[in-house]
């Protein structure tokens, strides 16, 4: 049993043993779901709502930004999803729905002129908003990719402190994450590096330079817009995935390079999946435990 799902399941021991009320509830929730019937569990399976892409215009063979679907090019991105059903800019461009949060994590109005974090009301993720003050979380600091966990680093922990940053910390993804959690940004201490698909969820592909809603994320770097994900590259242990916010494309990059970091926390599946990614029934994972 352990070997069956152990390959893709790692227990974050540090988090598991943290003596907080939140951790106690997490364990209660885990144990409760362990004994849930397979059918019922499927109904309660953590949802991972996908954001729509932000594209609310159509294209044909040679033109973009068309106001209606052109003949001969059916079923485009703009015809489906939240960008079609909720195409307003009240709370973020087109189908996006964001809420600004203050330094304590409390919701602000859409017109607030100063905010510390952004909550994505579709995905449930909460995003760090960078500063422009040469402090710990300045938008222009860069970090090398460093992850000493052999079950998630793709085969190479890679480079400590090879970025260029302030705050008197190790300029790498781990050092920055730990430092921000010590400050309790937006009232939380469980910030982490986003994975590739999470980073992609805030890409607004209706625009470029940058491909993001700058009414909520006006904080991209002054000259470079390349952000690390936690996702390592299966083909090369020395590389990991970045999101390039010039156009929203993703590509692999040497872990020794200095790229920017935008931390994330939360998500509906976060509480369970941080303990065990892919630990959902279907191959008898949970049933194997109950036998």
């Amino acid at each position: 049993m352990q070997a069956e799902y152990g390959k893709s399941c790692r227990v974050d021991a540090t988090t598991a043993l943290t003596p907080t009320t939140g951790a106690a509830w997490r364990w209660a929730g885990i144990l409760l779901t362990l004994f849930w019937a397979d059918g019922a569990w499927a109904a309660l399976a953590p949802a991972w709502p996908l954001n729509d892409t932000g594209i609310d215009w159509w294209a044909d063979g040679s033109r973009n930004n068309l106001a209606a679907a052109p003949a001969g090019y059916p079923g485009q991105d703009a015809s489906q999803g939240r960008d079609a059903a909720q195409d307003n800019d009240v709370d973020g461009h087109a189908g996006f729905s964001f809420t600004k949060l203050d330094a304590n994590g409390m919701a602000l109005s859409a017109g607030a002129t100063s905010w510390s974090c952004v909550r994505d009301n579709v995905t449930g993720l909460i995003w760090e908003v960078k500063t422009d003050d040469a402090g710990l979380r300045d938008r222009d600091w860069t970090y090398s990719w460093y992850n000493p966990d052999a079950t998630s680093n793709g085969g190479a922990a890679s480079y400590r402190n090879a970025g260029s940053c302030g705050g008197e910390i190790d300029c790498d993804t781990l050092g920055f994450t730990q430092a921000v959690n010590r400050t309790g940004l937006c009232g939380a201490t469980d910030w982490r590096l986003p994975n590739r698909k999470e980073l992609q969820s805030i890409v607004d592909r209706s625009r470029v330079d940058p491909a993001i809603d700058t009414n909520y994320f006006p904080d991209l770097g002054s000259s470079r817009w390349r952000y690390w994900s936690s996702s390592p590259y299966a083909y090369g242990a020395d590389s990991a995935w970045i999101l390039v916010f010039n156009d929203g494309s993703d590509r692999t990059n040497d872990k020794s390079n200095g790229n920017q970091v935008r931390l994330v926390r939360g998500g509906q599946a976060d509480a369970l999946l941080r303990f065990c990614s892919e630990c959902l029934p279907g191959r008898g994972g949970w049933r194997a435990i109950l036998r």
Partner: peptide, 18 residues
């Protein structure tokens, strides 16, 4: 195909699908 499940958590494996 090469898969590295021991060092990279699966992101779209069959356990999530019906």
């Amino acid at each position: 195909q090469v898969c590295k499940y021991d060092s990279i958590p699966a992101t779209a494996s069959a356990s999530r699908f019906t």
